[in-house]
Structures are given as structure tokens and as C-alpha cells.
Write a protein that binds this DNA or RNA. Structure first.
Lengths: 140, 140
DNA sequence: TTGGACCTTCCAGCGTTGGGAAGGTCAAGG
DNA sequence: CCTTGACCTTCCCAACGCTGGAAGGTCCAA
């Protein structure tokens, strides 16, 4: 146990514990992704262990590339005891498909750019197949 | 020759010829990526063959994933007769490295998400390794 | 009491368009 | 000549997911 059950943190501490910046935490709150925390006498946001766990959940989901909308749905499913794992899996599978599409697009670009780089001798002379390609559009 | 030397086009025609939308052409002009075209009596932008070639150049560069800043530099190099092909190649190589980095990052995500999807049986039951992972942070 | 580290809210901006409103221009057809 | 409709103009807003900064309040320790 790193955290006791009754620990109350400021936004800065919650940020360090969760990996989400304080700015981002306020932003998540503003868009309704996470609930509004209670406030201290000095109007500071006060986070408990549970809130920090939620933040960590969000942080991990974001780091896996899930869009905010997906994170919202994942959070709902997480908190829904009656969820069907199928719904979670479907969401993740859709994200996987998106990742694949992005990777394919990037690899296609990578291939084309790599060919151009290879074709260019890269010396002091002005002749350059890269510029010729961009200008005329020859795709080998 | 598809285009005669003295053809003058409206923004819509230039858009169709170049692959860049009219909206994007105006944007490129607003940020100084392309020069301001002359205007007709009715205040319409008038593009000649050269301008459309430039737009096509931009379009191809963008489609290869070059950032606007890079496109700007590529345009300059293109128009510089005294350029060194080395400079062009260096730019393209840097972009290639960026593409590789992005692909690696996405593939790392893809790997993690794929594992989660595989681990989840995806039926009517609520138990779901995906949510467990996001919550507890176990990365296999 | 003073300093400095933290917190607060609000506003603005990043990049690359796309959408849409409100209005001007132009060519063709009646 | 007038209308129609396709095109053009400028301008502002939305998207994404935050980040930065300004102006000011709170808290703790020396």
C-alpha cells in the first residue's frame, strides 16, 4: 500500500501520483470526464485515493491512444458492474483497427519517402529526385 | 500538355487541378506558404499554371506527411536554383526518422491493445482484463 | 511578516483544415 | 433585362487535447 485509505491530496500531488498534469486534471473536470472533487476551506481541490485511481485509469487509456470519447466510455464501463466484457472488447477492437489504419498510412508514407531519400545522391549539386518527384508527381 | 501557358483559373478550378481544396488554398495563402495571387475585376483570385504547379507540389509533400514548416522549406529549395541536393535529402531523411518514430510509437500501442483484446473473452460477463489492466496498470 | 510554493479562475493559442453564414460576381437562359 | 444558380468573397466557429500565461488567493515555514 503506497497510499493510506484516508489520504487527501492537492491537485499537484494527485498529478504526481497519477501521471496526469494538474492542467489536464482541471481540463478533464471541465469537460465532465471526471467528477468535481470536494474543496478545502481555501477552495483547493481535494482528491482521495479513488479519484487518483480514476486519473491513473484515464492516463493509461490515453497512453494507449484511446480518444477522450473512448476513455469516457471505458470509464463508464469500468464503473458499471453489470457491463458486458463484449462491450469493452468491441471498443478496444475498434481502437485496434484505427491503430492499424494509422500504421498502414504511415508505413505507406515511409515507403515513399524512403525511396526518395535513397534516390537522392545528396551532395553539393542541385539535381534532386525528391524535388522532381514532388513537382511532377512521379511515384515509382 | 493538359494546360496551355496562359490559362487563368478560379480558386475552384485550381483546387480541382491541384488536389488542394479551395479552403486549404486560402489558408496556405493566409499563412504565407504560397504567394497572394492576382485578383480579377470581381475580386476573384486568379491562378496561372505555375501557381497550380506549386499547389500540386504542396499537396504531394503534405500527402507524404511533411509538416507545413518542411513544406515551406521544400518550396524554397525547389525555387532555389543554387540549392544543394544534400539539403533536400537531409530534410527528407529527418522526416523519415520522424515517420519511423511515429510508427514505432503506434506499434507499441498496437501491441499493448492487441494483447488486451486477445485476453478479453468478450461475452455477456462483466469480467474484463482490459479494464483490470487500465485500472491496475499491469503491462504484460 | 515575508517569501515562495502552491492553488484559483479565465482567456488564448497550437495546426489544419471543414462548415457555414452573409453577401458579391458571373454566365446562361427566358 | 431579369432571374437563377454556381461560383466567389470574408469572417467566425468547431474540432483535438491539452498547455501557457496573467492576475490573484492560500498555506506553511523561517
Amino acid at each position: 500500500m503506497t497510499l493510506a485509505d484516508d489520504v487527501i491530496m492537492t491537485i499537484g500531488e494527485a498529478a504526481r501520483e497519477s501521471g496526469v498534469t494538474a492542467k489536464a486534471i482541471r481540463y478533464y473536470e471541465s469537460i465532465g470526464l471526471i467528477p468535481k472533487p470536494v474543496r478545502t476551506g481555501g477552495n483547493y481541490r481535494a482528491y482521495d485515493r479513488r479519484a487518483v485511481e480514476t486519473l491513473r485509469f484515464v492516463h493509461r487509456a490515453r497512453s494507449l491512444g484511446f480518444a477522450m470519447e473512448d476513455v469516457q466510455r471505458l470509464l463508464s464501463l469500468w464503473q458499471d458492474r453489470g457491463r458486458k466484457s463484449k462491450d469493452v472488447r468491441t471498443l478496444a477492437q475498434a481502437h485496434l483497427d484505427e491503430l492499424d489504419a494509422k500504421i498502414l498510412a504511415l508505413e505507406s508514407m515511409r515507403h515513399a519517402v524512403a525511396q526518395l531519400v535513397e534516390a537522392c545522391h545528396g551532395d553539393h549539386r542541385p539535381d534532386c529526385p525528391i524535388l522532381l518527384d514532388l513537382a511532377k508527381g512521379r511515384r515509382a
